[in-house]
Write a protein that binds this DNA or RNA. Structure first.
Length: 479
RNA sequence: GCUCCCUUCGUCUAGAGGCCUAGGACAUAGCCCUCUCAAGGCUGUAACACGGGUUCGAAUCCCGUAGGGAGCGCCA
């Protein structure tokens, strides 16, 4: 019944845990809390536990559990233990409650919901803090016809100080804390109690969680002390606000982290963004996973809430795309291509496209969008680009380009570049006068990677075929 | 209402009494580079919430004020 940790205080290895309740999605706020827990455990060579807080059977769903697990997996936040489920530990909670009842640190309360509601209403009317006044604290006899709840007997005097790792010491008067319910009238244990028992049983040394739990902490510490256990270290990290500084909403980030996968973000980029929200390491902005682990310290986390900035996330995502080995991006690009109804298993082409496009796209989705013409011959011609560049002059240049390119011995970017430049010089035109019609002809748009690179990647056959198609059409329209 | 928390450029942050004429990054403006679009380089605009103290000296320490947030459930 003791916290394992207190048996071996000298073997104080760090144990953290992420404990989401499966009543909603894993959004960026939760993901950041999970990240901090994970990072701190990794940094300290400790253990990271995943625990699902599903005591509220009404609101918990299996779907939510799945989404949370998938989100954690996508982010690469691997747990050393778990997932544990609180619903599988009800026997244990029941045993502890029985013990506390016997020891007198908990008691039965026979007040009905109606009575409690009325009490609360009165207190609010009197502009008092709504709280349980301890009506049943000294009651010894049961009240017929009422199934009791169990309340924790909180100390009424003194002060409880939370030595918070991010906030510093925070003092609470015990008199401000009322006797919270630890078991409902149907016997099921409540959240604040389960957390305490789980953290104790699992040997959690560092509770890293959202700011919103700071007020719960003194009660949890008091329960731990009533159980003769030493409270863990606490770190309450601030919440994430929407870009407008208001509470995070669906519009801007209160969506599943898996949404970011769909939109073409790299997990490491999202993690990088999240870790820099409320934490910094000198002037460094871009971190690999390893660098984050090496540099992270929970003590350096800021106290203030911070606003989510999608633009910076975008920038970071590009930084990560540019810095990671191109081949590593292949599966990601292919996943996005499939969403567009194409695909390719030509690794050389894929890698070439990634290198050519990574500086021109903020996300992999955008990269795929901009790269369709590399993978599908069914290209859409942008009417504006056609109107602007497929002029009589443009078509004339195109015909000449076609001839020169067809004569090329070697189909590679440098040779193509030389040929185009030579032609431009001969015709006394800027390279743009030639490159743009070619670009429109082979890509359908006025925007693409450098024309030599684009043609080289496309390959001789496909490039010439596309030029021919446009020339045929162009000739037709002039007759 | 009560308790607790928070407050540096638009945003993320650096800053632990003199190094601050407040630094970096995103965004933004201009210039350079340039076959398009980007990327990149350079330059610029832009902040210590307010008021009192303490001190030779305060973004940094103390006290108030204002504004924001959280908690106060048989929710988690």
């Amino acid at each position: 019944m003791r916290a394992p940790r207190s048996d071996a205080p000298d073997l104080m290895t760090v144990v953290t845990r992420f404990a989401p309740s499966p009543t909603g999605l894993l959004h960026v706020g939760g993901a950041r809390t999970a990240l901090f827990c994970w990072l701190y455990a990794r940094r300290m060579g400790g253990k990271f536990i995943l625990r699902v807080e599903d005591t509220d059977r009404e609101r918990s769903t299996e779907e939510a559990v799945r989404v949370i697990l998938e989100g954690m997996a996508w982010l690469g936040l691997d747990a050393d233990e778990g997932p544990y489920y609180q619903t599988e530990r009800f026997d244990r909670y029941g045993a502890v409650i029985a013990e506390m009842l016997k020891a007198g640190s908990a008691y039965h309360c026979y007040c009905t919901r109606e009575e409690l509601d009325a009490l609360r209403a009165q207190q609010i009317a009197r502009k008092e803090k709504p709280r349980y006044t301890g009506i049943c604290r000294e009651r010894t006899a049961p009240r017929p016809g009422v199934a009791p709840v169990v309340r924790f007997r909180n100390p009424q005097a003194g002060t409880t100080v939370v030595e918070d790792l991010v906030h510093g010491p925070v003092a609470f008067q015990n008199a401000e804390l009322d006797d919270l319910i630890i078991a409902r009238s149907d016997g099921t244990p409540t959240y604040n109690f389960c957390v305490v028992i789980d953290d104790m049983d699992m040997g959690v040394t560092h509770v890293i969680r959202g700011d919103d739990h700071l007020n719960n902490t003194p009660r949890q510490m008091n329960m731990l002390r009533a159980l003769d256990a030493t409270p863990p270290a606490y770190a309450h990290v601030p919440m994430i606000l929407g870009p407008d500084g208001a509470k995070l909403s669906k519009r801007h980030g209160a969506v599943s982290v898996l949404q970011y996968e769909e939109e073409g973000y790299l997990p490491d980029a999202l993690l990088n963004y999240l870790v820099r929200l409320g934490w910094s390491h000198g002037d460094q902005e871009v971190f690999t996973r390893e660098e984050m682990i090496a540099a992270f310290d929970i003590h350096d986390v800021n106290k203030a809430a911070s606003a989510f900035n999608p633009e910076k996330l975008l920038w970071l995502n590009q930084q990560h795309m540019v810095r990671s080995p191109p081949r590593a991006l292949i599966p990601h690009l292919r996943a996005q291509l499939r969403r567009l109804g194409t695909d390719s298993d030509d690794e050389q082409l894929l890698e070439g496209v990634i290198v050519a496009q990574r500086e021109r796209a903020k996300t992999l989705k955008e990269m795929a969008d901009n790269s369709r013409f590399f993978f599908s011959d069914d290209i859409r011609m942008d009417p504006k680009a056609v109107a602007k560049h497929m002029t009589a002059d443009g078509l004339a240049a195109l015909a000449e380009v076609r001839a020169r390119l067809a004569a090329l011995k070697e189909w590679k970017a440098s040779a193509i570049n030389d040929a185009l430049n030579a032609l431009a010089a001969e015709l006394q035109l800027g390279l743009g006068k030639i490159a743009q019609p070619v670009r429109v002809a082979v890509t359908g748009t006025a925007v693409s990677p450098p024309i030599d690179v684009t043609l080289a990647l496309l390959g001789r056959e496909r490039a010439l075929a596309r030029l021919d198609a446009v020339l045929a059409r162009g000739a037709g329209s002039h007759t």
